[in-house]
């Protein structure tokens, strides 16, 4: 498009302003974690590493992190299994109600998290609690796995669509049974998509808060729930700030890795 010089400059300034609005708040979290005062007044005058020390020895944080890791791991395993199964069913078979099954997988992520949370909370309380399965770590895992399935499903289905089915048939023609053909030919073919889906599912579960608040019993805290419960407490806010800063820094890792892998962006 033929844009005047001034229009181009305006657009450039605008883009820079948007980027600033995206990154300054995140930078602020990191800087503020060294703020000695708890009032959050700006600009920061006293710097301290006290909160970082406090965060690393905080029992609540450790327990919450451990809970989060357990929930995310089990939810990811369930999602990997169920997601891959549906992906296989949908990409290799034609059957009645195929579109409905497809919709079913996407629904938990398409509906607001609060709906999934309230629905599961209601089911656990009215139906499953009388049967002895009340709200607990199990219900949190169920909630997380439900919306994690779609992550694995999407990745695996996309890969299966591009895979050469002839290879599998060839393996079977040469005497491999269905099970062997699957493990030696099919699995290596979609393994990377399977793992990528698992990684996304894990990240999604690790970050989830809304479904967790409704499916966790009082006292069970995942890391996001711990942050949620402590964000508004003035004496805990600095520790929350440190955890937030750590999470911001950790989130750069996958980006750094993907940059390394693609690498040639700079050329």
């Amino acid at each position: 498009m033929r844009l005047s010089r001034s229009a181009k400059i305006t657009l450039r300034i605008f883009a820079a302003a948007v980027m600033a609005a995206i990154y300054l708040p995140l930078l602020l979290v990191i800087v503020n974690s060294f703020n000695a005062t708890t009032s959050g007044a700006f600009p920061i005058t006293d710097f301290t590493t006290r909160w970082w020390e406090a965060a690393f020895t905080n029992e609540g944080v450790r327990e919450a992190l451990w809970t989060s890791l357990r929930v995310a791991t089990v939810a990811t395993v369930i999602a990997l299994l169920l997601g891959a199964m549906i992906a296989f069913a949908l990409s290799r078979y034609e059957f009645f109600g195929k579109n409905t099954v497809n919709l079913l997988v996407v629904l938990p992520i398409a509906l607001p998290g609060i709906v999934t949370g309230v629905a599961l909370n209601n089911t656990f309380k009215t139906v499953l609690e009388p049967l002895g399965i009340g709200l607990g770590l199990f219900s949190v895992i169920v909630g997380h796995a439900t919306f994690c399935i779609v992550m694995v499903f999407n990745n695996v289905q996309a890969r299966l669509g591009r895979m050469n089915r002839g290879l599998e048939e060839a393996a079977m023609d040469m005497g491999a049974n269905v099970i062997r053909a699957f493990f030696t030919v099919t699995l290596p073919g979609f393994k990377s998509a399977f793992l990528a889906g698992g990684l996304l599912a894990f990240a999604l579960s690790f970050d989830e808060i809304v479904v967790t608040t409704f499916t966790a019993p009082p006292g069970t805290e995942t890391l996001p729930i711990w942050i949620f419960n402590n964000m508004a407490r003035p004496n805990q806010a600095p520790v929350v700030n440190v955890i937030a800063a750590v999470l911001v820094l950790l989130s750069m890792i996958p980006v750094y890795l993907s940059q390394r892998m693609t690498g040639d962006d700079r050329k």
């Binding site: 602020l28 009032s39 700006f42 964000m231 937030a244 911001v248 996958p254």
Partner: peptide, 30 residues
């Protein structure tokens, strides 16, 4: 760079981002 720049924050946690704006809007804050 911008394409990465706009998608990158998706990796930062949801609560972290809410928290960052909580700091930003604090009275007497940034």
């Amino acid at each position: 760079m911008l394409a990465i720049g706009i998608t990158l924050p998706l990796w930062a946690g949801y609560l972290v981002k809410v928290f960052s704006w909580r700091i930003t809007f604090m009275s007497g804050g940034p």
